[in-house]
Write a protein that binds this DNA or RNA. Structure first.
Lengths: 194, 194
DNA sequence: CACATATTGGACTGTACAGTCTAGTCCAAT
DNA sequence: ATTGGACTAGACTGTACAGTCCAATATGTG
C-alpha cells in the first residue's frame, strides 16, 4: 500500500498516455489519477503541472511508433515491401492514429512538443527512407532522381488516403491490406525503375 | 444597431468558423459572440446549443475546400497537373489544414459530423478522381488497373507528406511548389503509363 | 400608435476542473 | 522510537464556461 516512487511515476505516465490518447488534453488530472490508482496529490508530487505531465508522456511515447527499414539495397522491392507491411502494422493503427490526432489537435497550443514529435516520428522515417533510396539509386537499382522527393512520395502513397480516413474516424469496407501494400510498392517501383 | 435576423445568423456562423478554426471546440460562446459583435443571448436565439452551432458551421464549410477536375480524358497529364495545382492552392493551405485538424480532433466526440465531412471532402474528391482515371484507363490513355486504388495513391502522393507536416505545424524550408506538383504528377504518369 | 419579435447587456446558476492544503497513514533508515 | 519522505482521502479555492433569466431597447408591420 506504499509502493516506491519510480513505480508510481511509471503508472502515472501510463495512465496519462491512456487518458490523453482517448480523450485528448481535456482529460482531467482527477481522471488520470484514478486510472493510475493513485491520489491526485501524488500526480502533483511527480509533475508540477498538467502540461509537464503531458510533455513527459509524449516524450516517453515517441519511440513507440518507429518502423525500421532493412538496409539491403540489392532488392529494393523486397525491402520496401517489408517496410510497407510494418508501416501498416505499426503506424496505420487505431493507437497511433489516435495519438497523431491528439498531437495535431494540440499542436497550436504546444508547438514545441509538436515539432519534437514531428521530428522524431515522420521526419525520422523520411530520413531513413531518403537514405535508403539514395543508396539504391546510386547502385542503379532505382532510377536516378531526387531521393528526398521520392521518399516523400512513397511516404504519401503509404499513409495518405488511409491515414486521412482514419483521422476522420471513418470505417472502411473490408479489404485486403497485403494486396494494398503490394500494389503501392509495385506502383512505386514502376515509377522509379532505372 | 439592430440588424435583421438573417444577417446576424451569418455573422455568427462566420465568427464561429473563425473561432473554432483557430481554437478548436474549446472556443467559448462568449468569445464567438464577441467576434460576431453580437450579444451572447443572440447566439442562443439562433442556435439552441454550442454543439448545434458547431454543426451548422461545419455543414456550411464543406463546400469551401472542393477542387474540381476537368473532364477531358485526352490529356491526363495536363488535367492532373491542373488538378494538382489547384489542390495545393486550396487544400494544402493553413486554413484548410487548421480546419482538418479541428475536425480530426473532434471526430471522437462528433462522429456523425466527422463522417459527413469526410464524405463531402476527401471521399468526394476521391470519387471524382476515380471516375476520371477510370475513363482515362478505358480510353487507353492510362495503364489498365484498379482506378480506385490509383486514385487513392495519387491522392496520397499529393497530400501525404505535406499535409502531415502541416498538421504538426512544422515549417518547411522554402521550396518550389510548382516543381513539386510537376514531379508528383510525372511520377504518377510514369507508374500508370499504358 | 401598438404589438410582436429580435436584440442587448449583464446578472445568475451549475458544473467541471487545475491546483492547493490539511490531516493523517505507511514505511525505511537512523 | 523517532524522524522524514512518499502516499492517501478529501476538502477547498479560484476560474472558466455553457446555458438561463430578465429588464430595457430597437425595429418593422398592421
Amino acid at each position: 500500500m506504499a509502493p516506491p516512487t519510480q513505480d508510481n511515476r511509471q503508472r502515472i505516465i501510463a495512465a496519462a498516455r491512456e487518458a490523453f490518447m482517448t480523450e485528448g488534453y481535456r482529460s482531467s488530472i482527477d481522471h488520470i489519477a484514478q486510472i493510475a490508482g493513485v491520489a491526485k496529490q501524488t500526480v502533483y508530487n511527480h509533475f508540477p503541472t498538467k502540461e509537464a505531465l503531458f510533455d513527459e508522456m509524449t516524450s516517453d511515447n515517441m519511440n513507440l511508433f518507429l518502423v525500421s527499414l532493412s538496409d539491403s539495397p540489392d532488392n529494393p522491392r523486397q525491402a520496401l515491401l517489408e517496410f510497407g507491411r510494418k508501416y501498416y502494422e505499426v503506424v496505420l493503427t487505431g493507437q497511433c492514429v489516435a495519438w497523431m490526432r491528439m498531437i495535431a489537435a494540440e499542436a497550436p497550443r504546444f508547438p514545441d512538443m509538436a515539432a519534437r514529435t514531428y521530428k522524431l516520428g515522420p521526419v525520422a522515417m523520411l530520413e531513413q527512407l531518403t537514405e535508403y533510396l539514395s543508396r539504391a539509386m546510386a547502385s542503379k537499382k532505382l532510377r536516378k532522381d531526387d531521393p528526398q522527393l521520392a521518399a516523400e512520395i512513397l511516404y504519401g502513397m503509404l499513409s495518405g488516403a488511409e491515414r486521412t480516413r482514419m483521422l476522420f474516424g471513418a470505417e472502411r469496407e473490408p479489404y485486403d491490406q497485403e494486396k494494398r501494400v503490394t500494389a503501392i510498392i509495385d506502383c512505386f517501383m514502376r515509377a522509379y525503375q532505372p
